[in-house]
């Protein structure tokens, strides 16, 4: 299993630094983001006060298609979808009902979905997008950072796009150029241009 390559926490307060390192590690583990976040850098300074988290995501999970978890068998009288993994069964049924109508989608048992012959070709069925985990992943990452950050730091600026994210929070108003002055240098150290 790929692990978080680097979790770096910096703070002028050594006790707080250690505590935040533990907090960050546990939160990422609890929210099942260890496999997703490749690099996370945190800087927390209560004197300013400021909390900065910046990092990179590992590959974004791609969209889940029917072919990923089911075999499409075109029979003589009907099309049989043989489900290997039930995780996406509910969204699959929703999609099929929407496309072909409830009357055409039959589910004789948990692992089998039957469609009438001729509604779609094998290739077409296999390519139907059932779910997109990255939709919720963005929310999960931002939630994790909110969870890690000190609670009083309510003023925040967040960004997540194309595998890069940052989260800057403070108790006071954030200066307009906070991203340029503080976050950009961190990304430069990581070898990433924002």
């Amino acid at each position: 299993m790929p692990q978080l390559k680097q979790l770096v926490v910096e703070s002028p307060d050594p006790v707080g630094r250690d505590a935040y390192e533990r907090v960050a590690a546990i939160v990422l583990q609890d929210l099942d983001l260890v496999k997703v976040v490749e690099h996370l850098y945190i800087y927390a300074d209560p004197m300013v006060p400021i909390f900065i988290a910046a990092g990179r995501l590992r590959h974004m999970p791609r969209a889940i298609r029917v072919g990923d978890f089911a075999n499409v068998n075109i029979g003589e009288k009907m099309i049989i979808l043989d489900i290997a993994d039930e995780t996406y069964l509910a969204p699959l049924l929703q999609r099929l009902w929407g496309r072909y109508g409830k009357e055409n989608v039959d589910q004789p048992d948990r692992f089998t979905v039957v469609l009438p012959l001729g509604v779609a070709g094998e290739e077409e069925l296999e390519q139907i997008v059932v779910a997109d985990p990255s939709e919720t992943l963005y929310k999960d990452v931002i939630y994790a950072l909110q969870y890690i950050a000190p609670e009083g730091f309510k003023v925040r600026r967040q960004y997540i796009k194309e595998g890069i994210f940052y989260y800057v929070a403070s108790e006071d108003t954030l200066p307009g150029d906070i991203v340029e002055t503080t976050v950009k240098p961190i990304f430069e150290r990581m070898g990433v241009t924002l």
């Binding site: 307060d13 006790v15 707080g16 004197m47 000190p150 009083g152």
Partner: peptide
Amino acid sequence: LGNFEECIEKK
């Protein structure tokens, strides 16, 4: 209370 000495002192 929480992690930072500074915060505990002030709040």
